[in-house]
């Protein structure tokens, strides 16, 4: 095990627990963004070939799209109610 992987793993663990415990919906999205940074870095360090880089980029861009849709829906639901 590497010191780099250990640092990223500790941060990812902390983020997963904080997503579970926070009550506010908008702040959960901020923690989720930080967690997807960590997972994307871990994928690239684990696979260690150019295909792993492609997987990391595709995963990160798609998870950003998903966060965008969730934040848009929170705004719309606030307007309707």
């Amino acid at each position: 095990m590497d010191i780099v992987e250990i640092i990223i793993g500790v941060i990812a663990l902390l983020m997963a627990i904080r997503i579970f415990l926070t009550r506010s919906r908008a702040r959960k999205l901020l923690y989720l963004c930080c967690l997807s940074f960590c997972i994307s870095a871990l994928i690239a360090l684990y696979v260690d070939s150019p295909m792993g880089g492609i997987v990391a980029i595709t995963y990160f861009v798609c998870s950003t799209l998903s966060s965008n849709a969730i934040a848009y829906t929170i705004e719309q639901a606030k307007d309707i109610e």
């Binding site: 999205l29 994307s40 150019p50 880089g53 980029i57 990160f60 861009v61 965008n68």
Partner: peptide
């Protein structure tokens, strides 16, 4: 909020350093 909702310079920094680690400057 802008960082969460679209891949800005933060995402560019992470992904470019990943690809530089894996492939070099072309990455």
């Amino acid at each position: 909020g802008n960082i969460v909702c679209s891949p800005d310079a933060s995402a560019g920094t992470l992904l470019a350093s990943i690809m530089s680690y894996l492939m070099g400057v072309e990455g």
